[in-house]
Design a protein around this nucleic acid. Structure first.
Lengths: 347, 347
DNA sequence: ATTGAAAACTGCAACGTTTCAGTTTATCCC
DNA sequence: GGGATAAACTGAAACGTTGCAGTTTTCAAT
């Protein structure tokens, strides 16, 4: 029984009140550092009584494991990396996503780090960085493509991740997605019901998987209702407000202009509405618009719009869940979820 | 001269291709680990020739310092923590802030971690957490108050930080702020110029410093132009869209309703406009509204509004700059910046 | 030749944690 | 009483880095 054995250090002697470590607790309890470590992990080879004592002291002194220590020793970072496109047009989108993720992570030891990239650069780069440097335990990506190099890369390396959006490459991986197909179907049906015959779709860029989903739903419902499409070329939800407004103005100036629009983004719908009115037409009279939105602003200024709400916050929450599951090694199939659109809201 | 001295490890022998460390480079160059470390730091006691060799090899093998190692040894985390209120109403705000910060951090070794808290909880808590656990080298906070406990806390401890918004407690600290006083003055002048006589202000919550700035500017310009105030009670830019709309409806139903509004938030303005129209009035005719906005959507649906743009992305960029300066120990006074409002935009 | 100092390089230890391979003590069985 | 076994605990080593306190080597000044 020593413990007084002459090797206490400066911080133990002085009232320095520096952060307590395992050594601090070991000293206070008279146990070895190993024992304390194992006790806090509830290891089976430590006595019940001892565990209680250690836990008590740990709580008392406000012990929190040093992240760097853990990380260096085990490689576990307790970090989730959210890889983001910084050119994202969809305002507020990222805020909500982050809030949703944070909500889930709050009860865990995980921190959220935001790893941005510019759309002009290689989207692979930030992913490669995180995987190679092991700077996170899991990654969340968005802007998923049908053949997504990032998904292939992370899958090959067994690196845990979750995608916002699905892929189409025969790989089962964790994802959360909004059912854009169902949305488009609902939107078209609503327009059909309103007596609209010729519809245009403002879709996501062709590269992204949900372009296909939305477009498939759109075309299918169009066929089902016997309507025709007014092709909306040269504009996607990714384009700038001004671009969309310009293209839409063109579209609405044509003799065979659409009388119904399905919009894939709330932000873009602002531009669509402005364009409709630029050419002297009226939303709800000359043309009806159904729009997806994540903030709830559209209806305030254009009650004649039809909207469907997508909760990006919920998406964030689900994505965090998924990636945590992936880290735990759960079956990817159990980490996939799809959220259905709300009913079309009118006012 | 050894180096072949029997102590190479498994990863050196096998073609394991695990991440290169200082040891890897030391082995390859035949130098000691310390020398390599110092060489990469461009220390004066290392030969030029050696430095060149080391740098070359380091680049070749793609050496990147292990963050956990550095952090454990030096306490330096290379992390900036953005402390956020997750109930933030101002949509898109956070996205832009993050993009702005990321932009600055991209060229540095810093990572951005988002530390959220709920407005219902103690705003001190996340700050205390970061400072106590040393989980970042610097903190960015928003929602600054005139007497801000967080600012006091971090200042006392000498912890580097920057605030989005100013304080009023005789402490010189790094900040970036939008000149809300100037904004309010401009807004009131514009309304006066339009012949409006009785103005209301939708201000930030009283607790926050910029409430005072905006309100001071508002009152001063009001006096200067000889206008009167229609008190807008029970609503701030922090309230929900529905609350603001409700209060505004009340306000506009009064006999002595305002004929001009200054709005402190673009988001809130949506609700204001909706309310004006709820009671059968018209923006630009019965009442004029000047609004601040960070996204540029307002004008699209209500060209009769007057808007002033605030670049939150720029704010993020400035804040990152400031906090990095604080970490470097620069004089706080040199880390303060104010951005002026743009001209009032009409359409 | 001797001293001194500068230049270039290096071991060792430590940051806090966990894993591994023990050691000690108590308990049980015959 | 001897041996085996289980229970409870432990020191040493390692993860990658850097600061400290050296050690060599070279060279100039005396």
């Amino acid at each position: 029984m020593d413990g007084e054995g002459g090797q206490e250090r400066a911080d133990e002697r002085a009232g320095e009140a520096s952060r307590p470590t395992l050594k601090t607790i070991a000293f206070m309890t008279g146990l070895g550092v190993t024992t304390v470590s194992r006790a806090l992990k509830d290891a089976p080879d430590i006595g019940e009584e001892t565990k209680k004592r250690v836990r008590l002291v740990a709580r008392q002194v406000g012990y929190r494991p040093n992240r760097a220590g853990v990380r260096l020793r085990t490689g576990k970072t307790n970090v989730i990396s959210l890889v983001l496109d910084t050119e994202e047009q969809v305002g507020g989108f990222v805020s909500d996503l982050i809030y949703g993720i944070s909500e889930q992570l709050a009860a865990t030891p995980y921190h959220l780090i935001v790893t941005p990239y510019s759309r002009n650069n290689d989207p692979m780069e930030p992913v490669r960085y995180v995987v190679e440097t092991g700077s996170a335990d899991g990654i969340i990506i968005s802007r998923t493509e049908p053949q997504d190099a990032r998904v292939r890369y992370m899958t090959e390396r067994g690196f845990p991740f979750a995608t916002h959006g699905r892929t189409d490459m025969g790989i089962d991986h964790p994802f959360h997605d909004f059912d854009n197909r169902a949305y488009a179907v609902q939107a078209v049906r609503k327009l059909a019901e309103l007596g609209r015959r010729r519809l245009a779709l403002l879709a996501p860029p062709r590269r992204l998987t949900y372009h296909n989903h939305m477009r498939d739903g759109f075309l299918e419902a169009l066929a089902e209702a016997g309507l025709t499409e007014a092709p909306f070329t040269g504009a996607t939800v990714d384009h700038s407000i001004d671009d969309i407004r310009g293209r839409m103005t063109e579209l609405m100036s044509r003799p065979n202009r659409p009388d119904g629009i399905v919009s894939g983004s709330g932000q873009a719908t602002f531009a669509l509405v402005a364009a409709v009115e630029d050419v002297g037409l009226t939303v709800g009279k000359d043309v009806d618009i159904v729009s997806k939105q994540s903030s709830r602003l559209l209806h305030l200024l254009r009650p004649t719009l039809y909207v469907v709400n997508e909760s990006v916050r919920f998406a964030g929450s689900e994505l965090a869940r998924s990636v945590l599951g992936a880290i735990e090694g759960k079956n990817p199939k159990s980490l996939q979820s799809l959220s259905l659109p709300t009913e079309v809201e009118a006012r």
